[in-house]
Nucleic acid binder design. Structure first.
Length: 570
RNA sequence: CGGGAUGUGGCUCAGUCUGGUAGAGCACAGCGUUCGGGACGCUGGGGCCGGAGGUUCGAAUCCUCUCAUCCCGACCA
């Protein structure tokens, strides 16, 4: 492609609306333009990157035996009522009525539609296993879209759905997708990690998220330095070290603690460490207040709490809600004599003679002991893991890192097939629900994640496989016949060899061309200018390493061809 | 939905406190000089200052309401 013939509107300055690097660079490099919050137009250069990712995804899905189809974006509400999600999904599901007053919605995901296909078309064990996928624009009316393509309301997603006769078959389908995902992210040239993910109500260890490692990631993941264990922090299991201390139980005592509400100020006042205090946090679990007990220096992992309580939604209660539920101002809450349900982090049960709030303003209790002074209705792992905790698998050392979720594989079981009656007849003549799995990749997010992970102060540094152009040829003397002829020759030669190339033939000064080439992140740059006139050589610049080398005109194309081949797998 | 911020030409912003009829740089068009790290000079086009109401002789500026965008939180691929 000639730069003069395409449309890549680059910006010199950072747009005020973009804070994160991928968003900023996508705007500056002419990838996208915003139409409204969370909704973007993909301009030619950005679309090319997206298409490259799509192509890799498509090839690997096909290789894994999945079948591509395309489902409608507009879906009837009735279907969603059948699965029960019309009520449960919340305002993220954009609903509307058509001219006939039929309730409809925009598909944020397609379990309902595919299950409808399955129940109409899959009747026998002979019809499965089968796995359908599509690459399509999804719409989710996010509460707060942000970070450009990273969390848009409209985004491109590959979603796949597998159908099997039993759990063993579903596990096989799951593993196939897991393997395909590894190939996909490897082929994209990304540093990523597959981590165990929370699987919510369905349970089991059959949910993995694929995380691109980048500091700006919204998720925290836990990785063991000593074994293969890796998990989303939401899921990472805290293993208790040591049992209950064998200390003598002292008599409980009430202490006046005027104005001391925060863990730190209570500890300072009472001359204890936060590990000797148990804090009482009130959460609303689907609206019901629950007190959560936790060592003073720990943090609640809300996902674990929600799972324990079987709640769809848990949120920390506001001060007023706490007072309404317990009659106690926040800061002085404790489990002794409290009126609401109490659950405890497992660690609390190993503590003795600790400090809690007295359920009375300006008082705390010391030498409190569970069992003797209060009871709890459930004990579980409820806190966030830390790097001080051992690996739950091997006991080794953990590290925390940030990741961007780009893929998710999930065993669904029979949740949808049962609700929507997608049944088949097994070899034994019995009617059974199909066993399902679902598998998503955020295609547009992959591009954003790739930029988050691969950039420098000058712009994007595309991994070769997803770069819209692998090479850019800079004509640094558009008024010079010799230079222009050489640049044109290189351009033709690269095109002949089917290498995607951008020829910068614009009437711009060299500096502007260098800057744009770096901003766009094209992996290899060929400078055709003074050094060609003077020494007959073409400069090859590697965008990532900055390394510069010189080759005669008739050799440089072969060098590039080899370089690209070494970084591409198919 | 709570907290914070911002809306002035295509972009980045000044002007708002202290009201007097709209500016700079970049971008764009023309001409000339330039041409290996986002050139320079001259000329030119482009803005009912987010919107509505109000105060005032007079509002980008003050007041009220509203809309939009961004950030933090909640929430969420």
């Amino acid at each position: 492609m000639r730069y003069s013939q395409t449309f890549i509107p680059t910006l010199k300055e950072n747009p005020a609306e973009a804070q994160v690097v991928s968003h900023r660079l996508m705007l500056r490099a002419g990838f996208i333009r915003k139409l409204t919050s969370g909704i973007y137009t993909y301009l030619p250069y950005g679309l090319a990157a997206i298409r490259n990712v799509e192509q890799i995804v498509r090839e690997e899905m096909n290789r894994a035996g999945a079948l591509e189809l395309a489902m409608p974006m507009v879906q009837p509400a009735d279907l969603w009522k059948e699965s029960g999600r019309y009520e449960k999904y919340g305002p993220e599901l954009l609903r509307f009525t058509d001219r006939h007053d039929r309730e409809s919605c925009l598909g944020p995901t397609h379990e309902e539609v595919i299950t409808d296909i399955a129940r109409m078309e899959l009747h026998s064990y002979r019809d499965v296993p089968v796995n359908f996928y599509q690459i399509q624009t999804k719409f989710r009316d996010e509460i707060r879209p942000r970070f450009g393509l990273m969390r848009g309301r409209e985004f491109i997603m590959k979603d796949a759905y597998s159908f099997d006769v039993d759990d063993a078959g579903a596990s096989e389908a799951y593993q196939k997708m897991y393997d395909a995902y590894c190939r996909i992210f490897e082929r994209c040239g990304l540093r990523y990690r597959a981590v165990q993910a929370d699987s919510g109500a369905i349970g089991g260890n059959f949910s993995h998220e694929f995380m691109v490692l980048a500091d700006t990631g919204e998720d925290t993941i836990v990785i063991c330095k000593d074994c293969e264990y890796a998990a989303n922090m939401e899921k990472a299991e805290v293993k208790l070290r040591g049992g209950k201390a064998d200390a003598a139980l002292l008599d409980m005592e009430k202490v006046e603690t005027p104005g001391k509400r925060k863990v730190n100020s209570v500890c300072e006042f009472m001359q204890i460490s936060p590990s000797q205090l148990v804090k009482t946090m009130v959460y609303l679990a689907d609206g019901e207040p629950v007190a959560v007990l936790l060592r003073g220096d720990r943090e609640v992992e809300e996902v674990k709490l929600a799972n324990l309580l079987g709640a769809v939604e848990v949120e920390i209660a506001e001060d007023k809600q706490v007072f309404d539920a317990t009659g106690v101002p926040t800061g002085y809450l404790g489990p002794v004599g409290i009126s609401i349900k109490v659950v405890a982090d497992q660690e609390v049960m190993t503590m003795t003679n600790f400090v809690v709030g007295a359920n009375e303003k300006n008082y705390h209790l010391k030498n409190v002991n569970s069992g003797r002074d209060f009871e709890v209705s459930a004990v579980a792992d409820l806190r966030q893991i830390t790097t001080d905790d051992p690996c739950p698998v091997c006991g080794g050392t953990l590290e925390l890192t940030q990741g961007i979720e780009v893929g998710h594989v999930f065993k669904l079981g029979t949740k949808y097939s049962e609700a929507m009656k997608a049944m088949f007849v097994d070899a034994d003549g019995e009617e059974k629900p199909l066993v399902m799995g679902c598998y998503g990749i955020g295609v547009s997010r992959v591009v954003a994640a790739a930029i988050e992970q691969n950039h420098d102060n000058d712009g994007i540094i595309f991994p070769v496989p997803i770069a819209p152009y692998k090479v850019t040829v800079l004509n640094l003397g558009t008024n010079d016949e010799t230079i222009t002829a050489a640049a044109e020759k290189l351009y033709q030669e690269l095109k002949n060899r089917k290498i995607e190339v951008l020829l910068d033939d614009r009437d711009e000064r060299p500096g502007a061309k260098f800057k744009d080439a770096e901003l766009l992140g094209i992996p290899y740059r060929l400078n055709v200018g003074k050094s060609y006139l003077n020494n007959g050589v073409i400069e090859l610049v590697n965008r990532r390493s900055g390394e510069k080398s010189e080759y005669p005109l008739d050799q440089v194309v072969s060098v590039i061809e080899q370089e690209i081949a070494s970084q591409t797998t198919s």
